[in-house]
Amino acid sequence: MGGGRVRIGVTVFPGSNCDRDALHAVERLGAVPVELWHADPDLKGVDAVIVPGGFSYGDYLRPGAIARFAKVMAPLEDFAFSGGPVLGVCNGFQVLTEAHLLPGALLRNISMRFVCDRVRVRVEATDTPWTAGCEAGEELALPVAHNEGNYFADPATLAELEDEGRVVLRYLENPNGSANDIAGVCNEGRNVVGIMPHPERVSDPALGSDEGLKILGSVLLGAGV
């Protein structure tokens, strides 16, 4: 980081709609928010990347399926493979599974309804750059807003995730039918995390809570940055 302030990039695809919230949250953390346009050829030297929520490319084909091939994803994949901290939130989580940076997929909610609510989740793993600032077992109240949040992975992958402690967040009350109540997972290297809840929507007391900063601010603690 060269002594400067941490720079956190937020990708912007056509149809992203939580990018401004994420950039605002980054600013509140005292880090430098950097917008990463979908057609950017590089990551502008950021220290961490947030892939925000929304409906990238209108969710055409499958959520995240088209965004996965955006130009900015090539340097993002390199960054992730080299251990750079990446957080996918909601649609960002879907993008990261489509890009195979995270295992599994997000299916339609079992209710067939869009769910927009505040849910309680438990932090199951604190050894990721995005949860290092939380206590193990800590409960957070975070907003969810999604149509495809029903985490699916084959039984072998699920067992692997559980055995390796790669379930990062777990719902206390499952809102969407997710396997094993999974709200978030990380990759094998633990630097890439995908979660369905929206920490950026509770990142300012003006929004009723800033509990989400525990997640987003974790990356400033140095794990992986």
Partner: peptide, 10 residues
């Protein structure tokens, strides 16, 4: 074997 909520709804 994959959940098909659309199919179920129809």
């Amino acid at each position: 074997g994959i959940l098909d909520p659309q199919g179920e709804a129809v």
